[in-house]
Simulated scan of single mutants.
Amino acid sequence: MLGYILSLLHQLGDDVELHLVSHGAGTTVLAPFAQLLITVGRVGRGLAAVRNEG
């Protein structure tokens, strides 16, 4: 699914915005998915690990 979305966004160009919406427990799935969309290369660790360092 991620590959399909990235391919579609690439085909549509820079004028496209992708809005991700979730409710309740869905955020635990959506947050890592959003991280996959914006990370170049392999995701080293999750957002929670980075947030707890600060």
Rank of each mutant, 00 (worst) to 15 (best):
V40R: 13
V40C: 07
Q11F: 04
D14Y: 08
L30R: 02
L18H: 00
D15C: 03
A34G: 08
T39V: 10
T39I: 10
L18F: 00
I5Q: 00
L36W: 10
I38D: 03
A34H: 05
G41T: 10
L9N: 02
V43F: 12
Y4M: 04
D15A: 06
G24P: 09
L20C: 06
L18M: 02
H10Y: 12
L9P: 00
A34T: 09
D14A: 14
F33I: 09
D14S: 15
G26Y: 06
V16R: 03
L12W: 02
I5V: 12
T27W: 14
S7Q: 07
A25P: 14
H23L: 08
G26T: 11
E17Y: 05
L12K: 11
L6K: 15
V16L: 09
T28G: 11
L8T: 10
S22I: 06
G13I: 00
D14Q: 10
H23R: 07
Q35K: 15
V21P: 00
L20D: 03
T27K: 10
L37E: 01
L20F: 05
E17S: 13
L6D: 03
V40F: 08
D14E: 12
S22T: 15
L37V: 08
V21T: 11
L37W: 05
Q35N: 12
V21I: 15
H10P: 00
R42T: 15
D15Y: 01
G24M: 13
Q35Y: 13
A34S: 09
V40E: 14
H19V: 07
F33E: 01
G24V: 15
F33G: 10
L6R: 14
Q35T: 15
V43H: 10
G13K: 01
I38G: 13
G26K: 05
I5P: 00
S7P: 00
H19E: 01
T28M: 11
G13L: 01
V43M: 13
H23M: 04
H23I: 06
